[in-house]
Design a binder for these strands. Structure first.
Length: 423
RNA sequence: GGAGAGAUGGCCGAGUAGGUCGAAGGCGCUCGCCUGCUAAGCGAGUAUACUGGGAAACCGGUAUCGAGGGUUCGAAUCCCUCUCUCUCCGCCA
């Protein structure tokens, strides 16, 4: 959520910056609602002040017959206050839900542009492999090796679900452990294991709601949602809290499955593991001092990159343009891994800084000094990494001409020493 | 699922025949005094949001005692609904 006062004082500039995301208009109607609200507030509060002082006087008067006329008068005033409050509540509600649908302001360093082609490559690592034989896509490799069973996944649940078997299931688990060990032991994150379902407040805090409900799996009876990313439960760990400055930065990593409806992507990436309703991810989340968030984004992105480097998977880092960053994001780096089976780069991690956008929605604050006003922290997160897509990248990059797949060195201790997956 | 108890400020904890309660007291914390050091002691201060005024320091108003609604001139206190926590019973990985 953007700061209401900031919008009020910088309406045109805010609108201009938001439009770099590509929409038509973002702040139409704000001025009217805001002014209406303040007028109602002023009128109601003046009456309440009157009522308070007169009620006080009535309270101090022993002989109530002396103040009968005042009681009657205040009865009128209270009636009027009630009407004003009702109207104010309506306007408040409108203004609040309006603000909840306004996306974050792009960071000053986010490239301006509307389309994927406007994303900027920041750097790359490793050489995209050119295999000396015809490379297979991972869905063929997975089926031929008997480690990915797409048909059975579809039978058990439906499209976009996969059954992992044997070395495939083992490798998924190995990757999770490798990533968690790296981030906790080497990068200073605390591991957390959060609930995989959350309530509406948590989804609103990180920005999935109210706008993107159709992207979520929702439970019918208790009003719960399956998490689309660990970002949601982990960022909400500190919702409504005032943190100690000395606690910052707070760094969490979490393994969770992620559940996404993928509504609107019918027919896209229907084969293989790329786009699933359920996938595993190790997520990195940070709560930082506002002055540190820019630097922390670089650090966090580096932590995600480290996983790819250890696995010796070639990748590139893209700075997403203003039209391509997410609703809550101010700046996003995507890590794209090279997939020789499909001869393309695919997103495997997305690292974002949200500035104070999520912190304001979720009310996560700290004090600069003991007596200072609470200020909003900055939040960041990034995949470190998407596990299913990492497995895809390994299968395609480590495939051999005979159809077997070598296990990356760093992963072997996590797989009981297995060096090669064979049919 | 059944029965009962509870939810007050950073923490603990008073406060129910409705008014002088944004809320006693204690702890913690901040500043000052005192003080060979430490400890103790003394004094002052110590919630948040919105809003009006002001360049600012700051001053004023309103709201908030789990959340929402009701009664009343007036609600932490009375009534209703909900959420959460705890205890006992049942069920259960």
């Amino acid at each position: 959520m953007l700061d209401m006062k900031y919008i009020r004082e910088n309406l045109d500039e805010t609108e201009r910056r938001l439009r770099t995301r590509g929409g038509e208009s973002y702040l139409d109607g704000f001025r009217e609602l805001d002014e209406r609200r303040r007028a109602l507030l002023k009128e109601g509060e003046t009456l309440k002040a009157l009522r308070n002082s007169v009620s006080d006087e009535i309270g101090r008067t022993k002989d109530k017959s002396l103040v009968q006329d005042k009681i009657l008068e205040m009865r009128e005033v209270s009636h009027k206050i009630k009407g004003l409050d009702e109207e104010l509540n309506q306007v408040d509600e409108q203004l609040h839900s309006f603000l909840l649908t306004v996306p974050n302001l792009p960071h000053a360093s986010t490239p301006i542009g509307l389309y994927e082609k406007d994303n900027v490559q920041v750097r790359s690592w490793g050489e995209p492999q050119r295999l000396p034989f015809e490379a297979k896509p991972h869905w063929d490799l997975g089926e031929d090796l008997g480690i990915l069973d797409f048909e059975r996944g579809a039978k058990i649940a439906g499209a976009r679900f996969t059954l992992y078997r044997g070395a495939g299931a083992r490798m998924e688990r190995a990757l999770i452990n490798l990533m968690l060990d790296l981030h906790t032991d080497q990068h200073g994150y605390q591991e957390v294991l959060p609930p995989f379902m959350v309530n509406r407040d948590s989804m609103t805090g990180t920005g999935q709601l109210p706008k993107f409900e159709e992207d979520l799996f929702k439970l019918v009876d208790p009003d719960f949602f399956l998490i689309p990313t660990a970002e949601v439960p982990v960022t909400n760990i500190h919702r409504g809290e005032i943190l100690k400055k000395s606690d910052l930065p707070i760094s969490y990593c979490a393994y969770t499955p992620c559940f996404r409806r993928e509504a609107g992507s019918y027919g896209k990436d229907t084969r293989g593991l790329i786009r699933q309703h359920q996938f595993n991810k190790v997520e990195l989340v940070k709560f930082v001092h506002p002055s540190e968030s820019d630097a922390e984004l670089e650090i966090l992105t580096g932590h995600a990159e480290k996983v790819l480097q250890l696995l010796e998977l070639p990748y590139r880092v893209m700075s997403l343009c203003s039209g391509d960053i997410g609703f809550s994001s101010a700046k996003t780096y995507d890590l794209e891994v090279w997939l020789p089976g499909q001869s393309c780069y695919r997103e495997i991690s997305s690292c974002s800084t949200f500035g104070d956008f999520q912190a304001r929605r979720a009310s996560i604050r700290f004090r600069e000094d003991e007596k200072g006003k609470p200020e909003f922290v900055h939040t960041l997160n990034g995949s470190g990494l998407a596990v299913g897509r990492t497995l895809v990248a390994i299968l395609e990059n480590y495939q051999q001409e005979d159809g077997s797949v070598l296990v990356p060195r760093v992963l072997r201790p996590y797989m009981g020493g297995l060096e090669r997956i064979v049919p």
